[in-house]
Design a protein around this nucleic acid. Sequence first.
DNA 1: AATGAATGAGCGTTCATTCAT
DNA 2: AATGAATGAACGCTCATTCAT
Lengths: 190, 190, 190, 190
Amino acid sequence: MPDDQRRTPKQVRGQQRVSQILDAAALEFAEIGIENATTNAIAARANVPIGSLYQFFPHKEAILDALVERYLTGLRTVFENTLSADSLPIEVVIEQMLTGLANFELSHLGFSTIFVKSETIHAEIVQRVEDMLTRRYPHLTPETRHISAAVGVGIVKGVLPLTAHLPVELVLVEIKTAILSYLGAVLNRH
Amino acid sequence: MPDDQRRTPKQVRGQQRVSQILDAAALEFAEIGIENATTNAIAARANVPIGSLYQFFPHKEAILDALVERYLTGLRTVFENTLSADSLPIEVVIEQMLTGLANFELSHLGFSTIFVKSETIHAEIVQRVEDMLTRRYPHLTPETRHISAAVGVGIVKGVLPLTAHLPVELVLVEIKTAILSYLGAVLNRH
Amino acid sequence: MPDDQRRTPKQVRGQQRVSQILDAAALEFAEIGIENATTNAIAARANVPIGSLYQFFPHKEAILDALVERYLTGLRTVFENTLSADSLPIEVVIEQMLTGLANFELSHLGFSTIFVKSETIHAEIVQRVEDMLTRRYPHLTPETRHISAAVGVGIVKGVLPLTAHLPVELVLVEIKTAILSYLGAVLNRH
Amino acid sequence: MPDDQRRTPKQVRGQQRVSQILDAAALEFAEIGIENATTNAIAARANVPIGSLYQFFPHKEAILDALVERYLTGLRTVFENTLSADSLPIEVVIEQMLTGLANFELSHLGFSTIFVKSETIHAEIVQRVEDMLTRRYPHLTPETRHISAAVGVGIVKGVLPLTAHLPVELVLVEIKTAILSYLGAVLNRH
DNA sequence: AATGAATGAGCGTTCATTCAT
DNA sequence: AATGAATGAACGCTCATTCAT
C-alpha cells in the first residue's frame, strides 16, 4: 500500500529519532558510565545531529529521565504480568518477576546500568512490591512491608551486577533464593 | 645518623600530605560524586598545592586507586578480627563483620561511596568471605562457595544504600537477616 | 479579471505576514534587545512559520532593515506634518515634531529602541532637519546647518532614554529646552 | 639591574594579563559590538589562552564590568581635576571636563562605546555633575539639579558619536555650546 | 507557495595536567 | 622538591538558516 509508505508522519519520525537517541544513550551509559557519556557522542552513536538531539531533549539529564520513563513504562507491564498473580505461590511470582526483569534487560540493553542508579525506578519497584506484600501478608505492619520490599529490591540491585562474571541463569537462581529466604525469615520473625 | 633524621621528616611530610589528599578526596567524592570531584578542589580541600598533588598521584584515577588501597588495608584488619574467628557461630561472625564495616565507615567517612563502586574492594571481600566459607563448610563446592560469597557481598552493597532513608541499625539488622537466611538456604540446598 | 482577484488575496496575505513579523520583531527587539532576539522567537511571536519568515527576509538583519524602512515611511509623515510648517515659529515646530515622535512611539511600540541604534534613521532625520534649517536660516553655512541638525538629533537620541527613569512629558520638555537653547546659541554665534 | 628583571612578580604578570585582556576587549567591543564579541576572540586578540582569561574573569559579563570599573577609576581623576574647580567659571569647567573626556578616549581606545552603553558610568557621571551643580546653584531644587545633570550627560552621550563623521574638536565645541546654552535656559527658568 | 524538522558551526565555560620558576 | 599560573581540548548547548515534503 503506497499510502502507508507516504503516511510516515512527522510524529512517527520524531518518535523514531527519540527512540534512536534513547537506544544510543542506554548503550553509551552502560559502556562508559552515565557521567562520562557526552551528548555529542550519544548523538553521533544515534546517527542524529546534535541539534536534533536538543530538539527532543532540553539537556543531558532529560535524556536520562526519558530513559528512566521508558524503562518504567516497560517495567509496569512486567509487574502487571507477574506481581498481580495473587493466587500463585509467592515463589512462582518472584521467579516470574525475576525472569521478566532478565528478559527486560535482554530487550533493553543497558537497562541494568540505569536500574542500579535510578532512585525513581527503585521507588516504583519498591512500591509495587510493597503492594503485593500488602495483599499477601496483611498482618505485617506497613513499616515491615516497606523495609522488606526495599531490601528485596536492594538484593536484586546488589546481586544483579554479578552477571558481568557469572551466567545470568545462575545469578537469577541465587537472587530468588536470597529473596525468598529473606522473606521467609521476615515472616518467621513476625 | 643525622642524614636519616633529616630525610625522615620529609618522608613523614609526604605521607601526611598523601593522607590529607586522600581524606579530602574521600569527602569530596562522597559529597559531590566521584565524577564531579575535581583534582583542584581536592587539593584545595586538602590544603595542598595542586602541583604537589600531582607529585604523589600521576592522575585523578590514581587518587581513587590509592583510596581503595587504603580502605583495603583498613578492611583487612576488620576481616582478621572477625572472619577468622572460626570457633564462633556464623551468625556472630557475620554480625561482627557488619558491625566492623559500619564502624569502618564512621572512622573513614566516604568509604561506603567508594565501596559500592570499587571492583577491587568487591573482589577482596568476596575472597575473604570465600576463605571463611571454605574453612567452615568444606563440603561445599568451590563454585558454590564463590557464588555464595559473591551474593553475600552483593546483598551488602545493594541494601546498604538504604541508610540514606532508614536508620543504620535497622538496615544492618536486615542485611544480617538477609545474609544468614540466604546462607541457610544454600547450606540446606547442598 | 478573476486572475487578479485571486492573486490579490495572496499578496495581501503576504503583506499581512510581513507586518506581523515586523510587529513581533519590534516588540522582541525592545524587550530583550536586538542581539538577543532570535528569528525563531520572532516567527513564533508573529504566529508565522519560521520557513515563511525566511521567504520574506533573507536573514535576520533584513528584518531590522525592513523595520527601519517601515519606521522611515511613518516618520516621513510626521516630518511633513511638522517640519514643513515654515510659517510657524521654530519653537512650535520643534515642539510639534517632538510630540509627533512621542506619539509615533506610542503607535509603533519598540520604535525608540531601533531609533537610537539606526544610522539610517539618524541620517534621514538629520537631512530633514537640515532642509528645514536651510529654508529658515539661509544665511547659515551648509556646514553649520548640517552640524546643527546632527547635534539636534544627537540631543534627542541622548536624552530620550531618560524616559526609562523619568516621566515622558518631563523629558520632552527638557529636550525641547535643550534643542531650542542650542539653536539660539548657534544663531547668536553666526 | 638583574634583580629588577627577575623580580617581575606573579602579581604584576597577572595585572599585565588582565590589562591585556581588557585592552583587547575594549577594542573588540568597539569594533564588532559588545554582544558580538566572543570570549575566544578577546583572548586571541589579547594573546592569552582562553583558560587564562577565565582565571581572571568568571564569565564574559565580568570583563565588561571590569572595563567599566577601570574607566570609572580613570574618569574619577578627570572629574576631580575639572568639576571641583568651583572658583572657575562654569564655561571653563565644562570645557575642561569635555577636553578631559576627549583625552580619555584617546588614551583608552574603545571607551566611548562602553560609555554610551553603561548605566553605571552614566549614573556616576550624573552624580558628579549633580554635586557640582549643588555647589554652584544651591537655589535650584534637587529635582532640577538631577534632571539637568542627566540631560547634560545625555547630550554628551547623544552627540559624542558624531565624531565618527566629524572632527573631534568641532564636536566638542558643539557639545559645549549645547550644554551651556541648556544650562543657561534652565537657570533662566528658575 | 508553505512548512517546520533538521542541521552543525560556533559559543561560553571547565578542568586535568604541565612546567617555569 | 614545591608551587600554582598557565594551558587548550572538549564539553553542553544555541540558533540562523536550509530544504524535503
